[in-house]
Amino acid sequence: MMSEKIEIDIKVPNQTRYLSLIGKIGEDIARTLKRYHGDREELAYHINLVLTEAMTNAIHHANEGDPEKEVHITITLLGRNLNIKVYDQGQGFNVAALPIPEPQNLEDHGRGIYIIRALMDHVSYRRTNGGNVLEMVKCLEEI
């Protein structure tokens, strides 16, 4: 049997008002996974969250808040792998250099990448044509 494939490709202006739109698309995809036996609502929240965090990083840090730039998102579900890519058009930032936030330090910032790493199985950030891409993969073992 051929595995089910869902592919979504979307571009939005570099503005935080689109966070909720993209997050909701991610949630709705998680809810369509009828064969997923885990907690589908929890998965929906997590996908919404990692999309929101990745887009916020692209908007504020990589694209430096420039409203003329755009954020490009692809969401691909193939078999058990849910693959999310968020492309920015900026200089990028060093993901590896980010420290793990210590709760006792009580920083206002710096939890976004930590959250993505905690919820996704594979995370990478690399240069691409004219910018960078943050790639996040979730292996849906309970499908």
Partner: peptide, 16 residues
């Protein structure tokens, strides 16, 4: 229904 790291950051800032 939904809070991200920025939302948590705002609450941490208020707490501090």
């Amino acid at each position: 229904r939904f809070v991200d790291s920025s939302g948590l950051g705002a609450l941490v800032s208020g707490f501090k």
